[in-house]
Simulated assay, not measured.
Amino acid sequence: NTMAIGVAVGDSPVGPFKDAIGKPLYDGSWDYIDPTVYIDDDGRAYLYWGNPNIYYAELNEDMISLKGEVGKLEQTVESFGAPNPEKRAKGVKYKDTYTEGPWLHKREGKYYLLYAAGGVPEHIAYSMSDGPLGPWKYMGEIMPLQDTGSFTNHCGVIDYKGNSYFFYHTGKLPGGGGFGRSAAVEQFKYNADGTFPIINATREGVLPVGTLNPYERVEAETIAFSEGVKSEPNAKTGIYISEIHNGDYIKVREVDFGNKSPKRFTATVASALRGGTLEVRTDSISGPLMAELTIPSTGGWECWKTLQADMLKPVTGIQDIYFVFKGRKGCKLFNFDWYKFNR
Rank of each mutant, 00 (worst) to 15 (best):
G175W: 11
G275R: 03
E78K: 10
F325D: 08
P85W: 15
L66I: 12
G134P: 05
V324D: 10
G276H: 07
N163R: 15
M139C: 13
V37I: 15
F179S: 14
D62I: 02
S242W: 05
N259F: 00
V209K: 13
S231H: 07
G276V: 07
D283F: 13
L273G: 13
P135Q: 09
R264T: 11
L113H: 08
S271R: 03
E86D: 11
V70T: 07
G205L: 01
T294Y: 10
H105P: 02
N259W: 08
Y240S: 11
Y165A: 08
Y38I: 04
M311D: 11
G287I: 10
K72C: 05
E227C: 06
Y160C: 01
Y26V: 13
T76Y: 10
S261D: 06
T148P: 08
V9H: 06
G101C: 14
Q146C: 05
R181E: 07
E204F: 09
D96E: 06
A291Q: 11
R88N: 06
R88G: 00
V92D: 14
K67W: 00
A224M: 11
R328S: 10
G15K: 02
L207H: 06
N234A: 06
I33T: 04
E292F: 06
P174E: 11
G134T: 09
V315M: 10
I223P: 07
L312M: 09
D320R: 03
V255E: 05
E186Y: 03
L73V: 05
N84C: 09
G175M: 09
P197W: 05
Y240A: 06
S297T: 14
R217G: 01
Y339P: 03
A235F: 11
M143S: 13
H123D: 04
E243D: 10
M128V: 14
D42F: 02
L104F: 09
N51M: 04
K67Y: 00
L289G: 02
P13Q: 09
K23T: 03
L25T: 01
E216D: 12
N153P: 01
A117W: 01
P208Y: 08
A235N: 03
G91V: 08
A82P: 12
L104Y: 02
V229G: 00
R217S: 07
V280Q: 02
I285H: 03
D40G: 14
L312W: 02
D337N: 07
L212M: 11
Y112G: 03
I318V: 15
D27E: 15
L25F: 00
L207S: 11
Y322Q: 07
R253K: 14
R328H: 13
A224K: 12
P214W: 00
F323E: 11
Y339Q: 01
R253S: 14
A20D: 04
F188N: 06
Y98T: 01
K172Y: 12
G68Q: 08
M128G: 06
H123Q: 03
C303V: 15
E221N: 14
E61F: 00
A89N: 08
A201Q: 09
